[in-house]
Design a protein around this nucleic acid. Sequence first.
DNA 1: TCTGGGGTCCTAGGACCC
DNA 2: TCTGGGGTCCTAGGACCC
Length: 395
Amino acid sequence: MSSAPVFFHVDLDAFFASVEQMDNPGYKGKPVIVGAAPGHRGVVSACSYEARKFGVHSAMPISEAFRRCPQGIYLPVRMKRYAEVSGVVMGILGEFSPDVRPISIDEASLDMTGTSLLFGPPLGTAEKLKTQVRSRAGVPLSVGIAQNRFLAKMASDFKKPDGLYEVRPGGEEAFIDAVGLPKIWGLGKKTLERLSAIHLDTLAKLRQMGEDSLKSLMGQATGNFLYNAIRGRDIGMYSDTAKSHSISHETTFPEDTSDWEIISLSLLDLSHQVMYRLFAENGKSRTVSIKYRYSDFSTFSCQTTLNHLVASAEELYETGVKLLKAKWNPQVPLRLIGIGFDKVQPGEGSQQELFPTAYDRKGMVEKAVFNMQQKAGEATPVKASLLQRPRRGRR
DNA sequence: TCTGGGGTCCTAGGACCC
DNA sequence: TCTGGGGTCCTAGGACCC
């Protein structure tokens, strides 16, 4: 008997703030705001539901959060600790499904198809899952259940926090109606504005449009996405087809700067972080990209593809410097600098060159240092493993 | 409001080739 | 001379998400 598809989407509520409240019981029931320190540049990474009552939300500038909630408990991000708790949660999820796809540090998509013989109906199984995570990992979560990953994701959001919601077969369109057009995952401000400008501002109006009309109005990908999303159909979310990906690091300066010393040192530091990430995942790449942001927040990027693999952090750095120097207007101070690899493929870099270049040799030294640090258990880039998300495959 | 950091995917145009 | 159609790769920028 082939069973109908069932997916769970698990979303940890206000995750960073919840971990802080678990570790410091005195913070329970209070407005906890995790992110940049007030008075510095930065934003809210996560905040407790108590803080949300003051109008604070994630991605809000920390200065604004402080204006709205001066009595809040402001804490720095402890990524290593969150990764630990996340690992415990993911382990528990693995007891419920053989196909757990971590989407981020606080989300996962589970294929639960055919598990009812083992666990019983989905709703009860989700209850058990929630109880297990709460008691063993200590953090609250919301679960969505549906016939595809896209609907399950939105269902997990529907009754947050501590939510549980199942979209029953046949109830897809009614569920989308209940969610409402502006809250459909993948529809952002710009697309909503475009739709509104052509008077396609309700689900009813949109559903009268044929797929081809939507495509010609909004472009192939967006048209196709819209046509399926408003009907609650799968949009190919979180597909597991392994493609090339990117690795990057960036930093915002405490103050805007034109000082080449500061800029180049940052770039060198970031290059080493990026290269270590590449080592850690045994990847290779020929494409170097940089990103820079001026004091007026205008942001640019450029990239170049070499005819050989990048062998070392030195080479990455020097390629980045060339890119930046060719474009940057030093009259205007920089706010941010970033560097990374694009089109990263699995496989060793150029390690066994017959005639190693200076970069190859430097790369070997860097890799040796990296391996030693790995053995000593230090400098493990915590985020590296966590950021290897499944491909997002939105459209 | 004075706006982090790390990603994915899409689009459009240009280069180049057959 | 004034002109096709398809394919691939590359790049910059934009939209969106956590």
